[in-house]
């Protein structure tokens, strides 16, 4: 069932200005209400479509809620073990250097379980793009602490809130990787507002162009809402993200190659 404001549907003089990217297929997905990951994945697919790389792209999926998008995304995908996508993407990119290769991982996957893989891939200057959907929680397991859970954040394994003395500090991966010589582009985006989503799309474009130019490793971390893992209502997700997460994970470009035009 579809509904519009006008009973007869859009008037004839209206033109369609926004529709679902064909790279997202037509199926519904199983992610929770108010999840931020589908927004990030949508603009990522739009970017690949606009770059004309649809048939030239290989995605390596980590393990998390977003893994379900392997069944939706209309591009070639490999699913990796939890945390190991950067190693698997290295294998793909090294033997197919002219393809556009990216990983799609969460904070639990990339920063908690797979820190070694992402750091070494970055240090080697592997010419793929790593994308981290950072919601500061293990969403798929139902809200547990990851390496990016912020201080004070309540999870099922940090019941009174994450405490620096007992649980350590969150890892700011983009800041950490930006200092490595093999890294060409690092940025952090957000998808909790429409403007944030649009800006994140530009960051994806810059990272993928960095890869296309062969300038080195590129990383985009996207802060995404996880109302389920934060124990707030879906509608409260953006405010929680604004108040709790973004002060720790400020958005913007941290490193950018001089030759990059986009």
């Amino acid at each position: 069932m579809a509904t519009t404001g006008e009973a007869s549907g859009p008037a004839a003089e209206m033109r369609k200005v926004f529709t679902r990217s064909p790279l997202l297929g037509s199926d519904t997905h199983s992610l929770c209400p108010g999840c931020g990951e589908p927004n990030a994945i949508r603009v990522l697919m739009e970017t690949i479509e606009e770059m004309g790389e649809r048939g030239n792209t290989v995605c390596v999926l980590g393990i998390g809620c977003y893994t379900a998008f392997g069944a939706l995304m209309q591009i070639d995908c490999q699913q990796a073990m939890h945390g190991r996508a950067p190693a698997q993407a290295t294998g793909v990119k090294r033997v197919l250097p002219d393809r556009l290769v990216f990983t799609l991982q969460g904070d639990g996957d990339m920063v908690t379980e797979g820190l070694q893989e992402i750091v070494h891939a970055a240090a080697r200057g592997e010419r793929f793009t790593a994308i981290c959907l950072n919601n500061a929680a293990f969403g798929e397991t139902g809200g547990h602490m990851t390496a990016t859970t912020v201080l004070g954040q309540r999870t099922k394994s940090t019941l009174g809130g994450r405490d620096a003395g007992r649980h350590g500090h969150p890892i700011k991966l983009p800041e950490m990787l930006a200092g490595l010589d093999g890294v060409a582009y690092v940025a952090r985006g957000t998808v909790h507002t429409p403007v944030g989503v649009k800006k994140t799309k530009k960051l994806f474009r810059a990272a993928l162009e960095t890869q296309r130019l062969g300038l080195g490793f590129s990383l985009v971390e996207v802060v995404t809402m996880c109302p389920t893992g934060w124990f707030v209502s879906a509608a409260e997700g953006p405010r929680f993200q604004e108040e709790k997460l973004l002060p720790v994970f400020p958005v913007g470009e941290l490193k950018r190659p001089r030759d990059l035009r986009v």
């Binding site: 369609k16 679902r20 927004n39 649009k198």
Partner: peptide
């Protein structure tokens, strides 16, 4: 449409 996580919106504008 930008914020919808479930891709529910198609948007039309007067030409």
């Amino acid at each position: 449409a930008e914020i919808c996580p479930d891709y529910c919106f198609e948007v039309f504008r007067a030409a």
